[in-house]
Amino acid sequence: MGRNHSRASEMTSDSASTESNLPLWATRLISLGLLFHLTAIVAGVLAAPPASDLQRGVADLFAPYYGWIDQGYSYRYYSPAPPPTPVIKAIVHYADGRSDETVRIPDRNLKPRLRYQRQLAITNALASELGSARHQEDGEPVTWAWAPAFARHIGRSHPGAVSVTLTLEQHLIPDPDLIAEEIARTGRSIDLDDPRFYTVPQRIGDFPCEGS
C-alpha cells in the first residue's frame, strides 16, 4: 500500500521539502489577501440564481473586486439540463428593390471553429436579452441592449441595407426515441437540421441601419 501510495505521489503533487523562507509578516499579509480573494470567489460561485438573499448580499460586497479582476462567475455549466441552442435569423431589407436576404447566425461556414463559437455566444446573448424582455411587466417598453447594435452591424455588412429584422429560434434537441426508431426502421438517423427540430422563429424587432 505504501509503495503504491508513493508511486501515485510520484505522478501527482510535489510534496514540500522545506519550510517557507518567507518572513512571518509576509505570510500573514499574503494570507489576508488569500482569505479575501477566496471568500470573494466562493461568494461569486454561490450567488447565481437560485440563491438566498444572504448569498447574493455577500457577493454584492465583492462586486467592485469582481469588476476589477473579471471574476465572480458561477460555473453552472449545462445545468439544470443541456439547453436547446438559439439561432438568429436576420432578414436584411434593401431600399433599391433587391429582395430580402436572410443571414443565419451562427454561420456554419466560419473557419476556424472558434469564430463559430463566438457567434454562438452572440446568439446566447440575444436569447438572454429576449428572456429578460419577456419578464418585463406588460405595457413597459422593451429596452434592448444588444439587439439594435447587432442589427446595425449586420446592416453595415450588407451595403445598401435599410433595416434588419431580427428573429430568434431554438434549435431543439430531438427525442432520442424518435431517432432510435428511425435508425431501426431505415438504418439511417434523421438529420439534426431537419426543420421539425427548430421552433417557430420569434420576432425580436425591425431595426433601422441608417445613422449607425
Binding site: S79, P82, D193
Partner: peptide
C-alpha cells in the same frame, strides 16, 4: 464542484438523458 451540484437540479442528469442532450445538440456537433 459547482458544475456537479448545479446539475443535481436537473431531471435529465438524474434520468440519464442529459448525455443525449450533449451529443445531439445540432449547433455544436
Amino acid at each position: 464542484g459547482m458544475a456537479g451540484l448545479a446539475k443535481l437540479r436537473g431531471e435529465p442528469w438524474w434520468d440519464g438523458s442529459a448525455g443525449w442532450g450533449l451529443v445531439a445538440a445540432g449547433e455544436f456537433r
